[in-house]
Design a protein around this nucleic acid. Structure first.
Length: 231
DNA sequence: CTCCGGATCCTCT
DNA sequence: GAGGATCCGGAGG
């Protein structure tokens, strides 16, 4: 039992102050817990994506909400590591990030998928449309829903009650990586292979590339205008 | 102020 | 496999 202790408390926050791309594989297998009035739900992270801020001129990240600098919405991403950044999208979905990097530097990990390891009943109550336990948090909006998180939680400290974050006691297993999902433009290309997941995990999100939506009053597409359909 | 389109999920075919 | 749902952040006039 002479192993170096896992980062916890202030050490964990310091640990999270590193580069999100390096932290991403290390956070796979970590367990995020949220206790609410309705009960406790814990998710073991199986898939995350790194997003950076405008500070790193060597790696501009056009896929990041912070690409154009700080705004009221993305402010938590510029704050201290270990806090949550939750945003609302598509008029109906919430997605959760854990802020990384030193204070003042925007960086975060989008929590894309996980396995419910505690509070299965409550998670099922929150996600009645899921068909199996593996579906409960197999997608960023599903994960946020299962944990009961909304924009009201954005900026809150994930390392303090009613939240908790625990790193895996042993490396969680083989890690795969690939391009980020649903990011329009260059930010979703192979150049940004900042999505990491636990190889073979059934909870990893089965995703389709975000399809470009028809614009309002768009003229009919000229024939031969091929659209991308990558998977 | 108006307009565009998204770090998505679900249902129906 | 395709389309709809349904808000709001951010940019530009």
């Amino acid at each position: 039992m002479n192993q170096s202790p896992l980062p916890a408390g202030p050490q964990l926050r310091e640990f999270l102050s590193g580069d999100a791309r390096e932290l991403a594989p290390l956070l796979l297998g970590a367990v995020l817990t949220h206790e609410s009035r309705d009960g406790v739900v814990s998710v073991r992270l199986t898939e995350v994506e790194a997003y950076l801020g405008p500070e790193d001129s060597l790696h501009p990240d056009p896929g990041s909400h912070t690409y154009r600098g700080p705004t009221p919405r993305n402010a938590p991403m510029f704050g201290p590591a270990g806090h949550l950044y939750v945003y609302f999208t598509y008029g109906m979905h919430h997605c959760t990030n854990i802020v990384c990097g030193p204070e003042g530097v925007a960086s975060a990990l989008l929590l894309r998928a996980g396995e419910i390891v505690d509070g299965l009943g409550l998670a099922q109550l929150r996600r009645p449309t899921s068909k199996s336990p593996a579906d409960l948090a197999s997608g960023p909006a599903r994960l946020a829903k299962a944990l009961g998180l909304t924009t009201a939680d954005s900026g809150r400290d994930a390392l303090a009650p009613p939240f908790a974050l625990e790193l895996p006691s042993v490396p969680a297993g083989p890690v795969s990586s690939g391009p980020r999902v649903g990011v329009a433009g260059a930010g979703g290309s192979e150049q940004y292979a900042w999505r990491f997941w636990l190889t073979g995990e059934p909870t990893v999100s089965q995703y389709k590339a975000a399809k470009p939506r028809a614009r309002r009053q768009a003229a009919a597409a000229p024939p031969g205008t091929a659209t991308f359909d990558q998977r």
